[in-house]
């Protein structure tokens, strides 16, 4: 079986990992309570989406 000939250098490892980036989540403000929320998802603070209310969408501190 083919195996790597050389140990991957610290430099190569770090330059590879330097490109593992994350992006900020797109946020909009809830039309109902003007709290930040993700688009196309029910508001986590007031639980409304398109004028309808969903209890299960509401998130508290503990639920995260």
């Amino acid at each position: 079986m083919a195996v790597p000939k050389r140990k991957t250098s610290r430099s190569n490892t770090r330059s590879r990992r330097a490109n593992w980036k994350t992006t900020a989540t797109t946020l909009t403000s809830c039309p109902q309570c003007s709290a930040p929320k993700q688009p196309h998802i029910a508001c986590p603070s007031c639980g409304t989406y398109a004028g309808r209310h969903y209890d299960v969408a509401e998130r508290s501190e503990h639920q995260g």
Binding site: H40, I41, A50, Y54, V56, A57, Q63, G64
Partner: peptide
């Protein structure tokens, strides 16, 4: 179908 975010 209404999305309600991710499960904990």
């Amino acid at each position: 179908i209404t999305k309600i975010g991710n499960r904990k």
